[in-house]
Amino acid sequence: MNILEVKELKKSFGNFTAVKGIDFAVKKGEIFGFLGPNGAGKTTTINMLTGLARPDEGTIFLSGIDCVKDIKKAQHKIGIVPDESNLYDEMNGFDNLAFCASLYGIEKKKREKKSKELMEIFGLADTGKKPFKAYSKGMKRKLTIAAGIIHEPEILFLDEPTTGIDVESARQIRKLISTMNENGTTIFMTTHYIEEAERLCNRIGFIVQGKIVRTGTVEEMMQEVQTDNIIQFTVDKDLKSIQEKLTIDFPKFVIETVDNFTLRIGSSEKVSLMPFMQFFNSHQYTIHEAKIIKPSLEEVFVKVTGIEIDKMKKEKEGGKRK
């Protein structure tokens, strides 16, 4: 069942068309990743979905509510975590959460109870009386996410949830996202960390130059780029001396060396491990590691969008520093 349905959504700013008639749907209970390079139209799309921008054309239905006609009704069901923490610097963590709850009409007793609960869940209970401006970046991010879910939204929009924060905080936030999703919150997230999307998202939509170029589950997308079955072996000795012998003994396989101790064996058919293990054993090689190599979402992204990930990350981080 779809919680969000978007059809023919368009948005222009003057002569520039930021979103060129996109269609997609988000299923209830899933984590949907919305990926694309800088300037692809991600933020404009989120702004239209949440009520910060008016679409020029198209329809948005959220839990059956026509967001183009009545966004205020839909906003009760939406939680938003923007790419930069936007709480009140002078107010402490607890007051910030309670204030955000009040914007959704939650009564005092309930919002105080909920704020306390969330401060504990997000590991911020000890910092409740500190002003927001004294929080670290990771703590700010966590509190902003807590503020986004205080009214128990049906769908949470997360814009770059882990950008610009330390590794440990990012790990905690990813865990919190999974937990929120397990508890029934549908999540729509953008990220430029492809591996994060791969780990967290059930389905992905790629947007490039205002157009959605591909949507599907992570598995579906990976299968599309997986042409060969590949196994990687890492051994204890230099592989040079047996390389030629390998190609002679296994003529049907494509054999590539990664480095002096690692090689990859590929085939359009399934690769059986046993003959290779016996080969290495007979040549007095010890296998340290044998693993199946699967294509990454990064490869899918590069194939679909034609954009190099490193370039996209640099652009994003450059943009953040500005």
Binding site: L52, K73, Q75, P82, Y88, C100, Y104, G105
Partner: peptide, 11 residues
């Protein structure tokens, strides 16, 4: 500080 956005996004 973008906190005004929070108000605009509230119902």
């Amino acid at each position: 500080g973008r906190s005004f956005e929070r108000l605009l996004l509230a119902p």
